[in-house]
């Protein structure tokens, strides 16, 4: 619980850090779409290789990425495993009612790697972009919605606060677990039912804590005269530079590469 590294900004001075946050968010989205649209091994490897290159350039230590993989490993394995049985075709192995087909095996392996690549992409973005930049970028990207009468500032502050409080929530969870451990809760019990019960007991105080925390933050902000409807300026203005232009070109090349490979008939 303590090594929650998924969303922590890792300060640095690499090219990836310096990229415009808007570009990073849009490229992550495009990469997400590409990952899920890729249907053969070559297009998936193109994505994996280009992501790995970006990760190396980002100068964030490899161990950080490995830690964020570790946090989703179990979920990916389970998802991939379940996926094994949901493809009706020629069967490879039969386990009673359940049967595993070749295409099922293929699709679950793909799913497994896709999930990993998704985590990889979001880790790169989160490690190299500070919370302020992300919220500013969202505010910027969503600003067209302002013409539809939607308050962008509100959305931006919501995003900032929720990102900011993820680590706090984890710390609080850790504290509650400890408080229950010293009173004999069964977190290390082998019995699954007991384990689930024990974890239910964590969520109750956690929810209460979050609501209370949210309320007190709202009051604290209001008592300092925060007003969402006011137009706000920011310390740094977002401006695109030549770096961003190069990265867009890079992205376009990968994009076409993947699309072309998707058309090919390979495994």
């Amino acid at each position: 619980m303590n090594n929650f590294e998924f969303c922590k900004y890792f300060s640095g001075n690499s090219i990836v850090h310096k990229l415009d946050a808007r570009i990073k968010i849009i490229s992550s989205l495009i990469f997400f779409i590409l990952t899920f649209s890729s249907n053969n091994i070559i297009s998936l490897s193109i994505i994996a290789i280009s992501i790995s290159i970006i990760a190396v350039v980002s100068e964030v230590p490899l161990i950080k990425y490995i830690k964020s993989f570790k946090s989703v490993l179990i979920i990916s394995v389970i998802t991939a495993f379940i996926n094994l049985f949901f493809e009706a075709e020629t069967n490879l192995v039969c386990l009673g009612e359940l049967s595993v087909s070749l295409s099922g095996l293929k699709s679950s392996i793909f799913l497994f790697f896709r999930l990993f690549i998704l985590v990889f992409i979001s880790s790169i973005t989160m490690f190299t972009t500070s919370v302020q930049e992300i919220s500013l970028a969202f505010e910027n990207l969503l600003s067209p919605l302002g013409y539809l009468g939607i308050n962008i500032q509100e959305i931006a502050i919501t995003i900032t606060l929720s990102l900011r409080f993820i680590p706090v929530l984890f710390e609080e969870t850790y504290k509650i677990i400890n408080a229950q451990k010293v009173r004999g809760a069964h977190f290390d019990s082998k019995n699954v039912i007991k384990k689930i019960r024990a974890f239910c007991n964590i969520f109750v105080p956690l929810f209460i804590f979050s609501f209370k925390r949210a309320e007190s933050i709202a009051i604290a902000m209001e008592s300092r005269c925060y007003d969402v409807s006011k137009k706000r300026t920011s310390l740094k203005n977002m401006e695109l530079s030549h770096r961003d232009a190069i990265s867009i070109i890079f992205l376009l090349i990968i994009f076409t590469g993947v699309i072309i490979c998707n058309k090919m008939k390979i495994f």
């Binding site: 509650i176 408080a179 451990k181 010293v182 004999g184 069964h186 290390d188 964590i202 105080p205």
Partner: peptide
């Protein structure tokens, strides 16, 4: 395990108010 320890040594945390759950 921690369960066996806590029957021997236990503690009330600093500001335990947020940790009531029943």
């Amino acid at each position: 395990n921690t369960k066996e320890i806590c029957f021997n040594v236990t503690m009330a945390f600093q500001y335990p108010e947020n940790q009531l759950f029943e």
